[in-house]
Design a protein around this nucleic acid. Structure first.
Lengths: 345, 345
DNA sequence: TTGTATGCGTTATCAT
DNA sequence: ATGATAACGCATACAA
């Protein structure tokens, strides 16, 4: 009833453990010559016993685990799932497994984040959402891990200044486009639903929003910036609040599509038609964005591809820990659908 | 530059490896007494060297990996993420890691699914969505793994007949409720968007749908059952098709909320108002269901809890592999919101 | 109270 | 062409 090991196979086949190892790993064609006869004998024994190599022992012996850690900041946001989809595809195609964590935002000590890495449970780490910026301590740890040449790739919305590889999708330029677009539609009071899990996040949307306003000679009205959490409910409540302002905004920018869905609902509850009475823009272009009623105008990030590229970078880094910092920028672009239109008044 | 091991710590602290192990594992209170003095010395050395135990070696030695495998059938369906959320919470609370796979639906050979398990890369497996039923071969493998007392929990929508633990959320009774509800609203032509990745799935919705029809003296019109894939687009196309039938249905049941979102969009494109012209029901009650416009009538599964319970079962099984099969049934219930109303004609 | 010895399953090296 | 042996890093029964 016990699980068979190499020794059992070797004994049954009447060969040594090393031979079993050779045969199982298919080194039979290359450097190590094994007679076809013994090869077959070993194979038969493997089959008979149902022998399967133990990944734990392999990991200990070879040093790597064929596993990539993946940290998801907010498991409820489909956007991150889409990144994960790309990561999963690419990783499993390369024979790597995925170790998933979404604890990132819960923990107070950044140290915990990297436990898996220092425990050598994973060969490398992909983290998304720039959540790391919120903690000085975590950043330091990150740098020290890189110093030890542990492979890390960050999927980020900003140019990271510490020494890790990254795939960046900076929304800065696209946000400028969004603002130009809304402004051209004569919107003058534009609200922002700034729903982040941690203060510094999504600056690539907040900053250009303010700058564009100023550049157009418009004031930055703090009352129009709803700072809230990252859930749909937050988006809903914030929109409710913004839209009941004495001088309500005619356009709303949600920093992601999930919040926009909440805003859509809020507009409905207030009897506001979109885009006639209100224009709404999201970010991320999650799959369902183009199926919403109305179809959501948003900014596309090609999330799946971002995930794939991150894995590619990581694999390169794993194979060659000493190459210079890898940087890839995938520029997002504005996608105009049905949730935006001319300002009503 | 090399990573410190137990030996290094022992040397620096001037003790033996065993002592280091004792101190690090905190056995200092219990059976093995260590003088406070040496304890501190060891701790200091650990700190100085930045020693972290190697999880691979621990796994090899102790036999377990503190890792749970999780198989997600469709990474694009929020429903499964909500299960995953519960799984993640509960698992990480118990000090377990999560190994994620979504390859389930891609592979043709069920064998690959369980590689991790037989490789001893994980301590147990949670699989969701009953996708296993599609393959005889996979079922056999599953059973044989259970025979070897490998812990497996299935999150299922049906009573599984093979010997694994399971958390079941059978939609059967709830579907009967859905039908009774629609029938009471005078709907007589009720369509079904049966979007599954594999034929036998979601029978707990299809069957009662047909039975209820028959029980009400209504025909089961195959033209009203749109068999399609599991994506939003599939839901969209199927609804489009059903709603353009000569004698179009006045109510639509989508076997999950994701498909319902597609149907919502299709209704919009055809100028059909919901619920005035068309009633729509989904399943799963994903988070965003109650934020859709209109708010979606659906059937709630309490997905996060299902995930949590699955982990609990798995941990019980891991600690005691020989207990009888665990079965837990969490009955879903109909949630009436805004997408359903009286039949139009 | 601490140290010694051994084994977990695999793979690499060196003999044969 | 094949086999013996030594690590990999840790945990633990047992000896001191």
């Amino acid at each position: 009833m016990k699980r068979p090991t190499q020794v059992d196979v070797a004994r049954l086949a009447g060969v040594s453990r090393a031979t079993v190892s050779y045969v199982v790993n298919g080194l039979t064609d290359g450097r190590v010559p094994i007679s076809e006869d013994t090869r077959q004998r070993v194979l038969a024994a493997v089959d008979k016993l149902g022998y399967v190599p133990d990944a734990r022992a392999q990991a200990l012996r070879s040093g790597d685990t064929k596993t990539i850690g993946l940290i998801i900041p907010d498991i409820r946001n489909p956007h991150f799932w889409e990144h994960a989809e790309g990561v999963e595809q690419e990783a499993s195609a390369a024979g790597y497994h995925l170790l998933l964590s979404s604890i990132a935002l819960n923990l107070e000590y950044g140290e915990d984040i990297f436990k898996d890495l220092s425990h050598r449970r994973i060969d490398g780490l992909i983290l998304m959402g720039s959540f790391i910026v919120q903690s000085q301590e975590a950043q330091k740890l990150l740098i020290s891990l890189r110093k030890r040449r542990l492979p890390i790739v960050e999927i980020s919305d900003r140019n990271v200044d510490y020494e890790v590889d990254f795939v960046m999708s900076d929304y800065r330029a696209a946000t400028v486009d969004v603002m130009a677009y809304l402004l051209s539609l004569q919107h003058r009071r534009i609200g922002m639903i700034y729903g982040v899990a941690s203060p510094v996040l999504a600056e690539d949307r907040l900053q250009p929003y303010q700058d564009s306003l100023l550049a157009a000679g418009l004031p930055v009205d703090q009352a129009l910036i709803a700072r809230c959490g990252p859930t749909i409910e937050d988006g809903y409540q914030s929109a409710l609040q913004l839209l009941q302002l004495p001088e309500r905004p005619t356009a709303l920018i949600a920093i992601n599509d999930l919040l926009a869905i909440g805003a859509l609902r809020a507009a409905g509850d207030l009897g506001l038609r979109i885009p006639t009475d209100l224009s709404l823009v999201g970010f991320d272009d999650i799959h369902m964005a183009k199926y919403l009623v109305p179809r959501l105008t948003t900014v596309s990030k090609v999330s799946t591809r971002v995930g794939q590229e991150a894995v590619r970078q990581l694999l390169v880094r794993i194979n060659d820990p000493d190459i210079p910092q890898q940087k890839l920028s995938i520029p997002p672009s504005l996608i105009i659908r049905e949730s935006t239109g001319p300002a009503p008044f």
